[in-house]
Computed example of a mutant assay.
Amino acid sequence: MSVKTNLNAMKRMNDKMYPKLNADDRFKMVIKTFVNDDEVQRDKLVKSCPKATYSESEHAYTERIEASRDIVTVFIIQLLEYDKIISIMKILNGFHIKEQEYKTEMKLFTEVNAFLLAFETFCREHVGIDSKDMIQAWYGYDERFIKKIENIKQLLDLYPIYPDLELKDLWLKNVFVNEWNNRVKPVNL
């Protein structure tokens, strides 16, 4: 059998078999085409995928749901990072805080305070929902996030922290509002 005959037989087999693949097998084969840098087979696999028509919830609503979940997730990740840094500082400093270490702590606490204020402002003014409710909606099954915020706020209350409104506005505009506006288009009434 010639090479051309083998290629034609393989093409006919692909034309018959590819449409019959289940989603799991098709997915695995497509991933393999990336690994093998086989764009031709990838195109065949993708084009032979059965087509379906779906109905979904209104796009504006869906985007708000997804954007709010993603923003809260980013908030939680950053909150956990701050909590880790604060915990390490407490362990390292103990009760013997030197003036330089105190200044470092104050700088961090000011940053954390600005971060929390920015998130609360974003939720209240741009989404119209209390920040605790936003966290509860997406991570309500895990009370430790609300507890972490409460514990951090209690710690911040022990220090004479003046809100850094400039830093708060940076968090608010560059992170929370920017992401919300990029994802959520205004609804025309």
Rank of each mutant, 00 (worst) to 15 (best):
W138M: 06
W138K: 07
W138C: 09
Y139S: 06
G140H: 06
Y141A: 11
D142Y: 08
D142E: 15
E143I: 02
E143D: 14
E143W: 01
F145N: 04
I146G: 02
I146Y: 02
K147F: 04
K147Q: 14
K148Q: 10
K148C: 08
I149G: 06
I149K: 00
E150R: 07
N151I: 09
N151L: 12
N151K: 13
N151R: 08
I152P: 12
Q154S: 08
L155C: 03
L155N: 13
L156F: 02
D157I: 00
D157S: 08
D157E: 05
L158C: 08
Y159G: 03
Y159L: 05
Y159P: 04
Y159M: 03
Y159Q: 11
P160M: 01
P160I: 00
P160W: 00
P160Y: 01
I161T: 13
I161W: 07
Y162H: 08
P163Y: 06
D164M: 06
D164S: 12
D164F: 05
D164N: 15
D164H: 01
D164Q: 01
L165Q: 14
L165N: 15
E166A: 10
E166L: 10
L167F: 12
L167E: 14
K168G: 09
D169C: 01
D169G: 05
D169M: 10
L170S: 12
W171E: 04
W171F: 15
L172G: 09
